[in-house]
């Protein structure tokens, strides 16, 4: 039996200013699962994400990725295994051309030459962005930039892809295109969002994080049908959206 892609147990964290953000989070994600992490603003979603690759640490509990504990001595390998796509692609794409940016991660891992080029080509191919490789990121549309941002972490061949609000600021077509890309990837996926229909479209399983603890964990369709649960955690379905009316995947 292979180790789960992600195992978080008893994770608690208090920021240096005294704000307690996580109060003991337990979460296990098997290889190949697609999971939505739902929760209102301030629930601790971002804090949890930043623990997954060791940017934040020092609280209680543990995180392991593909069996490897997140610890100082494993940091480079952990950051290869956990690919975080941040909310604003302009934060992620900081180099002059798309190609250089996609190469940045694997180059930090020591890849050079033909092996590096192959990685970059494969990652851009996976998100359908091969033809923009030599363009500067600021010449791309927002949706294209987000897909390139996904490619920048795919190029590191991660064990788990973590997306922070992947659908934010996308137009409907960009949203659908990104969904198609994400569905086509053969990788474990954790999607942080409060876009509930998007969670339903892409993830069979959802986890509700609220006030620093996992408040619910189950099939997305069931969670979204539980209006009382949603209301307790400041989650709301968009007007006119009924989870039962949605076509089964």
């Amino acid at each position: 039996m292979t180790a789960p892609s992600l195992e978080v147990s008893g994770l608690a964290y208090r920021y240096p200013d005294g704000t307690q953000a996580l109060y003991g989070v337990d979460l296990r994600i098997e290889r190949g699962e697609r999971v939505a992490l739902l929760g209102p603003n301030g629930a601790g979603k971002t804090t949890l994400v930043l623990h997954l690759n060791g940017i934040l640490s020092g609280g209680l509990g543990s995180v392991t990725v593909g069996g490897l504990p997140v610890a100082q001595e494993n940091l480079l390998e952990i950051r290869r295994r956990v690919g975080i796509v941040f909310q604003d692609p302009d934060d992620q794409l900081f180099l002059p051309t798309v190609r250089q940016d996609v190469a940045f991660g694997p180059a930090n891992l020591g890849l050079r030459g033909a092996a590096l080029e192959a990685r970059v080509a494969a990652a851009l191919e996976a998100v359908g962005m091969s033809e923009v490789a030599d363009r500067p990121p600021h010449h791309l549309s927002f949706g294209q930039r987000r897909r390139v941002a996904v490619a920048t972490v795919l190029a590191m061949e991660p064990e788990i892809l973590v997306l922070d609000e992947p659908s934010s600021n996308l137009d409907p077509a960009g949203r659908r295109e990104l969904a198609e890309v994400l569905r086509s990837l053969d990788v474990t996926l954790l999607m942080v969002t409060h876009d509930l229909p998007y969670a339903m479209e892409l993830c069979d399983r959802s986890v509700v994080l609220s006030d620093g603890v996992v408040a619910a964990d189950g099939p997305t369709r069931e969670l979204l049908a539980d209006t009382e649960l949603l209301a307790r955690h400041r989650l709301e379905l968009p007007y006119g959206f009924h989870p039962s009316a949605d076509p089964a995947p």
């Binding site: 930043l50 956990v82 941040f86 900081f94 930090n108 891992l109």
Partner: peptide, 13 residues
Amino acid sequence: ERVHLAMLSRGYT
């Protein structure tokens, strides 16, 4: 700060 965070996440040293 956000750019730096995103860079660290991709193994920037």
